[in-house]
């Protein structure tokens, strides 16, 4: 049996989480999850917020998301070990093998490059799936609808061009 929450229940709970985060009882701010990355980069490379205006700009949002991220890592780890029982060290996603190739090096190089541009893209737009798509569209923000439309289009076009349409034999 697959230990999994159905999509509709996850959708309802996600809406409640967003509403709680927005509310004065929660955090009085939108839920977001990409500002922590430059914030952590600043810590890891010991860049001073006095010298780099961007770090000054994200000083609070980055810290907030950093604490939130620690919670997410804890929650994800405990759930994968005790509830879904899917915790295992792995490198190669099943569907990458099926629709791309079976080279570990290829997967790791593409992971690094896409991770790099994922953050550049999110920071250019000012948000990611959480901050723009989820929290932004819930406010009917025009900026988030533009972002959402562009992302949906580019994700589907990339899916079509980057992966094979027929599964490899694995």
């Amino acid at each position: 049996m697959i230990r999994r929450m159905p999509w509709w229940l996850a959708g309802i709970l996600m809406a409640l989480l967003v509403l709680f985060t927005f509310s004065v009882f929660g955090a009085s701010r939108p839920f977001g999850a990409s500002t922590y990355v430059p914030y952590f980069a600043g810590i890891l490379f010991d860049l001073s917020p006095q010298k780099y205006p961007y770090l000054k700009e994200v000083h609070f949002a980055g810290a907030w998301e950093g604490v939130m991220l620690l919670g997410a890592l804890t929650g994800g780890f405990l759930t994968s070990v005790f509830v879904t029982k899917t915790f295992r060290l792995s490198i190669m996603p099943t569907a990458w093998k099926k629709y791309k190739n079976s080279s570990v090096i290829s997967r790791l190089i593409w992971s690094f490059i896409s991770g790099f541009f994922l953050i550049i893209g999110a920071r250019l737009a000012g948000g990611c799936t959480s901050g723009h798509f989820l929290s932004g569209m819930a406010q009917t923000a025009v900026s988030s609808m533009i972002f959402g439309g562009v992302v949906l289009l580019s994700i589907v076009v990339t899916g079509k061009l980057f992966y094979k349409s027929e599964a490899n034999d694995v």
Partner: peptide, 29 residues
């Protein structure tokens, strides 16, 4: 930004929120 984000999300298979959760279940890639 949205174009780069969408392309990267399709290739990495994660976004900045779901990525850490999948690292927490042991994904090295």
């Amino acid at each position: 930004g949205g174009t780069l984000f969408g392309i990267s999300m399709a290739i990495l298979g994660k976004c900045p929120g779901t990525g850490p959760v999948s690292i927490a279940e042991g994904r090295i890639d």
